[in-house]
Amino acid sequence: MSTFVYMVRHGDSPKEGNERTRDLTEKGQEQSHRLVDILKNEGVDAVISSPYKRSILTVEKLAEQLGKEVLVYEDLREREFSSEGNRISDQELLPLLEKSFKQPDFTLEGAESNTACQKRAVKVLKDLLVTFKDKKIVIGTHGLVMTLMMKYFDSKYDLNFLHSTSKPDIYRMEFQDNELVNVQRLWETK
Rank of each mutant, 00 (worst) to 15 (best):
S164D: 09
R54H: 04
T147H: 03
S2W: 09
G140P: 09
V181W: 00
D169L: 01
Y152H: 14
H163K: 15
D154I: 07
D45S: 15
R185E: 08
E84W: 03
I137G: 01
K61A: 13
Q103M: 08
G11W: 02
Q184G: 02
V59K: 06
N18G: 00
E92H: 14
C117K: 05
R120E: 05
L97P: 03
Y6P: 03
R20M: 08
D127C: 04
S113P: 01
R9I: 15
V8Y: 04
M150T: 03
F81M: 04
K123E: 14
F101H: 11
L108C: 08
G28Q: 11
H142R: 03
E64W: 01
M149H: 01
D127V: 04
G28E: 12
K136Q: 09
Q29G: 01
Q118N: 03
N182W: 01
R20W: 05
V70A: 13
G17W: 09
F153K: 10
K27V: 15
V181I: 15
L57T: 04
S49Q: 10
E98T: 12
N18P: 00
I88A: 00
W187D: 02
V130G: 02
L144N: 15
D169F: 02
G43I: 06
W187M: 04
Y73P: 06
L186S: 06
V36H: 07
Q118L: 06
K102R: 15
K190M: 10
M149F: 03
D23P: 05
Y73E: 06
E26W: 02
I170R: 02
I88M: 13
P104S: 14
K15E: 04
S83Q: 09
N41T: 14
V183T: 12
